[in-house]
């Protein structure tokens, strides 16, 4: 067993239509580490996640998770230790109520009734949505759905979380809450995201993908300060690191928009 928890060993993948999605991808991840997976659209992020979860099968190279090589025959075992949080919570919450959804994973792993209900309730409490147990998913807000999606995964007590755009389309407060929550977990986490501020907040290291290849593996600050690298990979630094004037951007008023001009004068007089 290696001291790494997850090991991508020159993994390549080409889709049936000939699109080369990943070529020779290698990186490793330590126990308890949070790694950000970033890259422009089409860089291969989602292919990488799908290989990890066994939805796609590695064509060359290998992926080791906790000392186990991921193959179609080991995938059931791999999925026990892997919690996959999908980008669209609607895909993940397929059961009629939040409670049943959270119970789905452990029930499939063989947890039975005297233990199942307390486990589900405990998980719901841990994710702060105990009050939503009996709600159907279509009565939940975006943030609540995301929390529920995370709960469904936590209930199977995985040792690693894989998250695809965990803060996608969330309002600022819900986004902040999710970030705090993920920071509180002790699991190893692989987080694919376009939200580089989130990556900066959460991740110990960043894997930058560019056209199916690993362009860099480094701490977030190192990557985000390297303008050349970011530009080459079609990325921009996190908003927080972009140079903005301290009083915010100065937007110019277009001539003819009287209302805005009046407003402008008003603030100028102040």
């Amino acid at each position: 067993m290696s001291h790494h928890y997850l090991h991508f060993n020159s993994v390549s993948f080409t889709y049936p239509d000939g699109t080369k999605a990943l070529s020779e991808v290698s990186f490793e991840m330590y126990h308890g580490e949070r790694i950000g997976l970033i890259g422009a659209n089409g860089a291969g992020k989602s292919t990488l996640l799908q290989l990890l979860a066994g939805f796609l099968v590695t064509q060359s190279g290998s992926i080791d998770l906790g000392g186990l090589k991921i193959t179609p025959s080991t995938i059931a075992e791999v999925r026990r230790t892997l919690g996959f949080v999908f980008q669209d919570a609607d895909d993940q919450l397929f059961m009629p109520t939040v409670f049943e959804d959270v119970a789905f994973g452990p029930a499939n792993l063989g947890v039975e009734e005297p233990e199942l209900t307390p486990l589900v309730l405990e998980t719901l409490k841990r994710t702060g949505i105990a009050h939503l147990a009996d709600r159907p998913p279509y009565h939940l807000s975006g943030g609540q759905k995301r929390a529920a999606a995370i709960a469904t995964v936590l209930a199977s007590s995985p040792s690693m979380l894989v998250l695809d755009e965990p803060a996608n389309a969330l309002d600022p407060i819900a986004r902040r809450r999710i970030i705090e929550q993920l920071r509180g977990f002790t699991h190893s986490q692989l987080i694919a995201s376009h939200d580089l501020d989130l990556v900066l907040d959460l991740c110990h290291r960043v894997v930058v993908l560019h056209e199916g290849k690993v362009a860099a593996v480094a701490p977030p600050m190192t990557v985000f300060k390297n303008k050349e690298l970011l530009e080459q990979c079609g990325l921009l630094p996190p908003l927080r690191m972009q140079e903005l004037p301290p009083e915010g951007p100065q937007l110019k008023v277009v001539e003819g928009h009287h209302h805005e001009i009046a407003h402008h004068h008003h603030t100028a007089e102040k």
Partner: peptide, 18 residues
């Protein structure tokens, strides 16, 4: 995608009853 989400949580053909 839903199918994948089900597989990821160990779906084996049996949907647990409520």
């Amino acid at each position: 995608r839903i199918h994948n989400a089900m597989l990821a949580r160990g779906f084996n053909g049996e949907v647990p009853a409520g």
